[in-house]
Nucleic acid binder design. Sequence first.
DNA 1: AAATGCACCATATGATCATATAATGAAAAA
DNA 2: TTTTTCATTATATGATCATATGGTGCATTT
Lengths: 294, 294
Amino acid sequence: MARNSLSPQISTSIIEFVRANGMRKGEHLPLQMLADTFRVSRAPVMSALRKLEERGIVRAEPNRGYFLGMDSDKIEVAKEDGGEHPEGDEAAYFRIAEDRLSGALSERVSESELMRIYELPRTKLLKVLHRIAEEGWIERLPGNGWSFTRTLTSRQSYEEGYVFRAVIEQQAMLLPTFELNKEGFLKARETQTALRDGGYEHWSRAEIFKANNDFHETLVACAGNEFFLDSIKRINRLRRLVEYHVTIDRSRLPRQTTEHLHILDLLEAGRRTEAAAFLYTHIMGAGRIKAPQV
Amino acid sequence: MARNSLSPQISTSIIEFVRANGMRKGEHLPLQMLADTFRVSRAPVMSALRKLEERGIVRAEPNRGYFLGMDSDKIEVAKEDGGEHPEGDEAAYFRIAEDRLSGALSERVSESELMRIYELPRTKLLKVLHRIAEEGWIERLPGNGWSFTRTLTSRQSYEEGYVFRAVIEQQAMLLPTFELNKEGFLKARETQTALRDGGYEHWSRAEIFKANNDFHETLVACAGNEFFLDSIKRINRLRRLVEYHVTIDRSRLPRQTTEHLHILDLLEAGRRTEAAAFLYTHIMGAGRIKAPQV
DNA sequence: AAATGCACCATATGATCATATAATGAAAAA
DNA sequence: TTTTTCATTATATGATCATATGGTGCATTT
């Protein structure tokens, strides 16, 4: 009846915050500062702190506020929230995509039908539907109901997506505003190396996909142009949906990661043009070999 | 309390339909065919036809259906609906953009505030807000309210947009799937010629902007890749908002249209690479000279 | 001076309901 | 057989309301 409380998220954020700052036992946690950091008012921060007190992570002193109860590196991550809770609406969004790709949802659907199937309140459903509409794989019909487009399910769209990514990423790399992001590269290098040296055998499909996306988004972010980055993020959201329905060919991962690392090498050696050309071939190659099972 | 009826729109659609098909007095208008054409059920078509009958455009024969009451080229366009009614939500979307750009709306706003200001029901407002959020110039705050981003108002975003357009359009033209669209080119040529030969002095700002956008979207559509076209449409929607606040330098229009026509010439002569290079310079030139008054 | 803690107000969500409209099956007419 | 016409059902919208939560001014404490 009322919205979900922010305090669980804020609790998590506070823990991340004190960790990231390496804070130690006894340090003060000013309310307003935390509120500003998380872009909320003091109220939800207060209620988050109260819950953290119950868990012994912070101590309250009357009229003086809250203080860290232990060194930040000793804080245990809460075991709760474990149930794969992908951010509320995200869950519904995903279920709709799954059901569409598997054919459980027909091309034309009505809002009330979806409300019943997914047991969503109208507001949440509409939020999700409008988001999907902006992503381009559903559209509102003039009268009642919605109609899925062929964007998700057609082979042609799939290939067009790869062409688009190849062009955008290559061109992003060639922009005069492109600048290496040392920290980002370091992380990307770690992840890709881990994936190459064994990770490809046991990482989950979601982890592998995320590693791949993060790599490409890190590259495009270096171009310093929000429109390039946005368009890549947008198409990657679509890709995620489709690729989940494709059998991962894990044997290709070592080669893929090696190529990723090669791109980093080239960039760090200042050979941008070569890196861009190689990246282009890399993406087009991936698009040609994997095929959606639709 | 209930949604707006479709019948006014359908009435207009029917008139457009019979015009486009050059239908003549007495021809039959089957209900189901019209319904399928407009992707609705027979019900709203029926009610549209009843209204057209009152205006004498169609004749009803009991149990036989509706028949065109006059030759299609003699149908007068209805004078009603005159009040600049840009498709319902579009109006609210525009007003919000205007007020943001003119500074009437502060960076942080709450939903109820917007409902009051624009006298919108919650559902409509949320639809618009989510659309804007997808376009990237507002974001939901974790607690209450929304916050405008700097995408619309910053000079940097403005320039990044031009770079993005220049790259996308040039690259679209170089794709192997690029194919001339003769009919589209013909129309574009007409419009651009009209604009060059005098139109630039008295066309409205909206007309000029639309002509320009249509030209560029026609070009990108030839690439046969929905992602290229979508990204151009998306950025053009943003551009439209900002450019309305810029004084048009009409003296530049003859040169601009001449360049547009030159691009068509090059393409029709099969000189695609040159056309692409010229297009790139053309867009970047436009971005450098016009400046948003923000 | 700075931060907390409280009280009060504002906000957003979801449920329910009335109502106008869209969708649709089936009878009736052509 | 096709299309209209009618009757019935389904759908979507906006209004209203209860309620839990977020936001904020101010007295109080340190």
